[in-house]
Amino acid sequence: MLEARLEQSSVLKKVVDAIKDLVQDCNFDCNDSGIQLQAMDNSHVALVAMHLKTEGFALYRCDRNIALGINLVSLQKVLRAAQNEDVMTLKAEDSPDALSLVFENSENDRISEYDLKLMDIDQEHLGIPETEYGATVKMPSAEFQRICRDLSLLSESVAIEATKEGIKFSCTGDIGKGAVTLRQNPNVEKPELGTTIELQEPVALTFSLKYLVNFCKASGLSNTVTISLSNEVPLLIEYEMEHGYVRFYLAPKIGD
């Protein structure tokens, strides 16, 4: 059986908020390394991979591998009943029909108990090889979100170019064009506010802004985001948490 306790409900609430507009139904795979998820969007253009590691739980017990087939919209309805600071306990049997969720406030005088019906989901998994990326950019997640939102008002696509000059996001649309260039600018005192660029080779790729804006809903998970790029392969965007991560992969647009 599974028994997993999070000190703060906000962790799972933020993860679900981050991915629910990309995927609807997905398996939460529970095993002795924690709770993992890999799911593609309906169009098979983007993929989300999530891992909440056992170290992030105040209590974690999972005797066998259990797949929890969850509709994320339904899960979000239940999670709305949890306050951010509540302790959350997830429980499921070995072949569960339902996931039990218990929310307890810090004063220990309120216990909320919910059951979420589970579904059988036959999920496709992709094998993602370890990749040496040509360019890796670490920057404040809020800044990346702002750039994606601003450019998405002008165009459907963004060209991302990483060179030794910096990383440039540019787009062209009906009303005009726009570009933002970030130069390497490490912040010694507050590393989460700096921008670092590791460049093995120049990279130039084009991506759909609709998806990038969607990924930025994970900005609440981390102050920083890591963007990894190589020519002719999908982009990797990672939001690292204290004990886990949410990663998004996005196939490029080609033939500009």
């Binding site: 992709l126 080609i254 500009d256």
Partner: peptide, 14 residues
């Protein structure tokens, strides 16, 4: 107009 590629062009189904 650039064409949106599929993830299956890059990664194999397990």
């Amino acid at each position: 107009t650039p064409i949106q590629n599929d993830l299956s062009e890059y990664y194999a189904l397990l």
